[in-house]
Amino acid sequence: MAAPAATQYGGPDIDAAGQQLFDELIAEDSRIEPRDWMPEAYRKSLTRQISQHAHSEIIGMQPEANWITRAPSLKRKAILMAKVQDEAGHGLYLYSAAETLGTPRDKMTEDLIAGKARYSSIFNYPVLTWADIGAIGWLVDGAAICNQVPLCRASYGPYGRAMVRICKEESFHQRQGFEILLELANGTQAQRDMAQDAINRWYAPSLMMFGPPDDDSPNSKQSMAWNIKRFSNDELRSRFVGMIAEQVKALGLTLPDPDVRFNEDTGKWEHGPLDWEEFKEVLAGRGPCNAQRMERRREAHEDGAWVREAAAAYADKQARRAAPATEAA
């Protein structure tokens, strides 16, 4: 993924030839690589999707990092730190993938901090109890895995490769969350209640992570035609509901949705209505924690400025010292 976006193309002939090769590659379900010609809309759409995905990983560190000091044992602290470190790693893999499309990482960071870029609405909900950490691992990471496994086959090579790496690491995230809930579910009545309460609050937001219903998701069709997205939002949501409807039984707890059922006629899992007005509000920046998450991200970036400057100054000094010696040799 070394090469920056190619600049050597241009002109009607090259565009036509490029479009033809691009269409052939998509038709045979092959991969597009950074230096290939690609339609501007494909480049733009992927840049948006991958950078938003990266921002989600970075912002997603906050709600969990807040719980490291309060995790109930040294083991749980170590696990949570490993998970938060993974999220940082996922963000960096994705920024790298997005960069191959021509937008520098610093620019994406600037956009996030300036409030111009989006991240997943799920991270704007508060994490109230230790059980929430369990519910986030099980439901939020579970939904993310459902979304991300098909993205391993996304037509853009660097995105698919980043997703393969991420998916390998995510399964630990989901299992550790489920285990937290399982331990609480086998604990005292107060612990069981806490686990159920966390599931009650995280269920609907995690279902909304798959994005708006298919008839209200205008870009999905194009994204599927480009082999970026392999399944529709509703299709993935339905699969996810089917999985958690079974898994919740192992916890001896319930989903807060009496309408969850398997429809024999369609062969699909169904769920009750979701509050898409709330979803829009949270996205528009009016969720419970939007301001807090953005402020924290901005602070972290500004507080780290001296470190970035110092590292750059040190690198410069080392390079200057090394230069005359090299010339003499």
Partner: peptide, 21 residues
């Protein structure tokens, strides 16, 4: 409707250009 999936695949448009680095 726009936004909201973890994968950023939510129907919104690309971010506008920010200030220079």
């Amino acid at each position: 409707m726009t936004g909201g999936s973890t994968t950023g695949d939510d129907g919104s448009t690309a971010p506008a250009p920010g200030p220079a680095e």
